[in-house]
Amino acid sequence: MAADTVSIATLQDWIIRFGAAVAEKREWLTELDSAIGDADHGANMARGMSAVTEKLAASAPAAADDLLKTVGMTLVSSVGGASGPLYGTFFLRMGMTTGAVQDLDATGLAAALRAGLEGIVARGKPEAGDKTMFDAMSPAVDALDAAIAGGADLAEATQAAAVAAATGRDATLPLVARKGRASYLGERSAGHLDPGAASTTLLFETLAAAIAAS
Rank of each mutant, 00 (worst) to 15 (best):
A2E: 04
A2P: 15
D4L: 14
V6P: 07
V6C: 05
I8H: 05
Q12H: 13
W14V: 11
I15G: 09
G19I: 06
E24K: 13
E24C: 00
K25F: 00
K25C: 00
T30I: 00
L32N: 03
S34E: 06
D38R: 01
D40C: 00
H41S: 03
H41T: 11
A51W: 05
P61Y: 07
D65G: 03
T70K: 04
V71E: 08
L75W: 10
G81V: 05
S83A: 14
S83T: 10
P85W: 13
G88M: 13
F91Q: 13
R93N: 15
T97H: 11
T97K: 15
T98C: 10
T98E: 09
Q102S: 15
D103S: 14
L104K: 06
G108Q: 02
G108Y: 03
A110N: 12
A115S: 15
A115H: 07
G116E: 11
E118K: 12
G119V: 09
R123Y: 11
G124C: 08
P126H: 09
E127D: 14
E127L: 14
G129C: 05
G129Q: 05
A136I: 10
P139R: 02
D142Y: 01
A164E: 07
T167A: 15
G168F: 08
R169V: 01
D170C: 06
A171H: 08
T172H: 07
L175Q: 14
L175T: 06
V176I: 13
A177C: 10
G180N: 05
R181E: 11
G186P: 11
A190G: 10
G191I: 04
G196K: 06
A198R: 05
S199P: 10
T200Q: 12
T200I: 13
L203P: 10
E205V: 01
L207T: 07
A209M: 06
A212T: 09
S214M: 10
